[in-house]
Design a protein around this nucleic acid. Structure first.
Lengths: 147, 147
DNA sequence: CTTGATCCTCTAGTCGCTAGAGCATGCAAG
DNA sequence: CTTGCATGCTCTAGCGACTAGAGGATCAAG
């Protein structure tokens, strides 16, 4: 059973030290034991939990979603419809975000392609931005997933 | 020359009233004239400027990028390398974001596909999240573009 | 004239961190 | 054993881009 300082935990999970403290503060990570001089001491459980959190964040789950997922995995006797549902939702959000970004990419392509070489007066980039009618696809609301 | 209240401007550009005031506060929109009773009065110029801003935001430009773009379009005698550069950057950011999201989508597909029907104890969703080794692609840093 | 919509300013909250101040400790080199 | 730097601690404030709410003034329709 390894005992890790916050710095070691940070290195072994690739999550920054202030972020770990932040996760503790908002209750995503349990309050760890402390040394005599008040330093946090972590164990393998914490490494696994933090890795879980990190992975879920990378997949775009919100902190709240992760909270649910963690509660689920902490009580493994419940059924996991909730987890499936969250994953589904996440997938739908990612897919709509992709679709939206592909539309934006199209428009940016046109802008970059038509780029001007002269004065900004008839700069295509600026003109395209100024005249929304130029763009063919409708833009979508920024998805709740973003970032 | 139409004179618009902030509410009319909001409706005609589909930008919320508080957002318009916020844009004024941070200097993206000029301070408009006021009526005797201190209400903001806008004109066509403002409609165009706000539409420009909205469009650029939808394309993912940051407020700072938009500030540059607006400065460029306000001084049309300058050349527009800067605008081209910004558009290029934006395109690159969007493309990398798409690639990243496609990787995430792949992983979420696998999670959703393998979804369990029993107890959370061996829930694939949770297990996948817990065991990062399961995922084939490396996750990328969230791009600066997101949202 | 009344009522409800719209407007005003100001402050604070959102999300998920990140940065900094101002200290206390731990550890290795000299 | 001292020096000095890395790491740790708590606390507060900041980021981007809004959004929400309080508490009040004004406008326009019926």
């Amino acid at each position: 059973m390894t005992a890790l300082s916050i710095g070691k935990l940070s290195k072994s999970t690739d999550v920054k030290v202030p972020t770990i403290r932040f996760y503790e503060q908002i209750g995503l990570l349990p309050e760890p034991d402390r040394t005599d001089s008040d330093r946090r001491v972590y164990g393998d459980r914490d490494v696994r939990r933090l890795a879980f959190i990190k992975h879920a964040r990378q997949l775009g789950f919100t902190i709240d979603g992760i909270r649910t997922l963690l509660a689920l995995s902490d009580q493994p006797d419940r059924d996991c419809d909730e987890a499936n549902r969250l994953a589904q939702e996440q997938l739908a959000a990612v897919e709509s975000k992709i679709a939206q970004l592909q539309a934006l990419r199209g428009e940016l392509w046109r802008m970059v392609e038509a780029r001007c070489r002269g004065a900004a007066a008839d700069c295509r980039v600026i003109e395209t931005l100024a005249d929304h009618a130029r763009c063919m696809q409708d833009h979508v609301e920024p998805s709740p997933f973003a970032r």
